[in-house]
């Protein structure tokens, strides 16, 4: 735990000093990296911990992006708009969670996949509010500086990671994992599964909402396709799986690996990095179901993933 903390502090300190030592382009890259950390950790909170795999978390990102952009245009300060974006995404997540978390496994995943499409359709068709397919281009005069966006993203990434760290050490975290391992049994011993799931789900929407707004300020342009983005869902899932779901550092490692590969390929081969992601996803699920982190831990002898490991062996 102490090492976790000190490593975290070192990383945060390095990240906080980054704007001094980088040019705009490099800082942009770090911003995107931190943005993905924030999103991956949020996804980790619901899907990594409870096993309810959401294939549509981009819907909260999209709602946040539109809220943030529209409020900024309406004259609110950027930080207030980010706050509202988080709040509205969360408020939306509560009823959505109550309805969809009754569904199990694939039904939940598909429902979320569908919800993301519904979100995109609404953003496309509600032209009076969202300017439809045109998207919203934010005037540069309104936008916070790149450094401001960077620190905002850093804050969100730290917050999301801290949330995982804190939850992992609490009874609530244990309950969530119990739901993942066996929801029926968890319920039998008195875990209020519905409450836990909905809380985790709503909490997992806070940061994507805020991150969506910050993203809108960073790119200065959003449209329905770019924020209710199916590829974003894929990336969240792939990054967490790659590193190790339900762990503290797994998603961070996954993000760093995937974003580095992406940076090398995206402009020249826009499709290649997604194909690689797909292949990575399959390989990890087939051969490394607990992610890269599990390999590193196994080398240290019996330890952290024993629970999942045993569970798997028994299951098969």
């Amino acid at each position: 735990m102490r090492l976790d903390l000190s490593l975290g502090l070192i990383l945060v300190l390095l990240a906080a000093l980054a704007p001094v030592a980088t040019n705009d382009y490099q800082l942009s890259f770090l911003l995107q990296l931190l943005l993905m950390v924030a999103l991956a950790q949020s996804w980790n909170l619901i899907s990594g911990m409870t096993g309810y795999v959401s294939f549509g978390h981009a819907v909260f990102f999209g709602v946040g992006a539109y809220t943030g952009a529209l409020l900024l245009v309406a004259g609110h300060s950027w930080w207030a708009a980010v706050g509202w974006a988080a709040l509205i995404a969360t408020a939306l997540a509560l009823p959505i969670g109550l309805l969809t978390l009754r569904l199990h496994g694939p039904y939940f995943a598909i429902a979320m996949l569908g919800l993301n499409e519904v979100g995109r359709t609404v953003a496309t068709l509600w032209v009076d509010l969202t300017e439809g397919g045109d998207g919203i281009a934010l005037s540069p005069a309104l936008l916070p500086a790149l450094e401001t966006n960077y620190y905002a993203t850093l804050f969100l990434a730290v917050l999301a990671t801290l949330a995982i760290g804190v939850v992992l050490g609490t009874r609530f975290g244990l309950e969530l994992q119990a739901i993942r391992e066996d929801e029926g049994a968890a319920e039998m011993v008195g875990v209020n599964t519905t409450r836990d799931k909905v809380i985790a789900f709503a909490a997992s929407a806070v940061i994507p909402g805020a991150a969506g707004a910050v993203y809108a300020y960073y790119t200065s342009f959003i449209d329905p396709l770019s924020v209710f983005l199916p590829a974003l869902n894929i990336q969240m899932v792939a990054m967490v799986l790659l590193g190790g779901r339900g762990t503290l550092w797994g998603p961070v490692i996954g993000v760093v690996i995937v974003m580095s590969v992406r940076e090398l390929t995206w402009a020249e081969f826009p499709t290649l990095h997604l194909a690689l992601l797909g292949a990575l996803m399959i390989l990890v699920i087939l051969f490394l179901p607990e992610g890269i982190l599990s390999v590193l831990r196994k080398r240290r002898g019996p330890g952290s993933t024993r629970l999942a490991e045993e569970c798997r062996q028994q299951g098969e």
């Binding site: 090492l3 990383l11 050490g169 975290g173 550092w249 974003m259 240290r300 952290s304 629970l307």
Partner: peptide, 22 residues
């Protein structure tokens, strides 16, 4: 549960290497 396990030195090294590569 194993969740709170401290990270190994090896892991630290890998994270730093990855950052440098990136």
């Amino acid at each position: 549960m194993g969740w709170g396990k401290p990270m190994s030195r090896g892991l630290l090294r890998i994270v730093i290497t990855a950052l440098i590569v990136a």
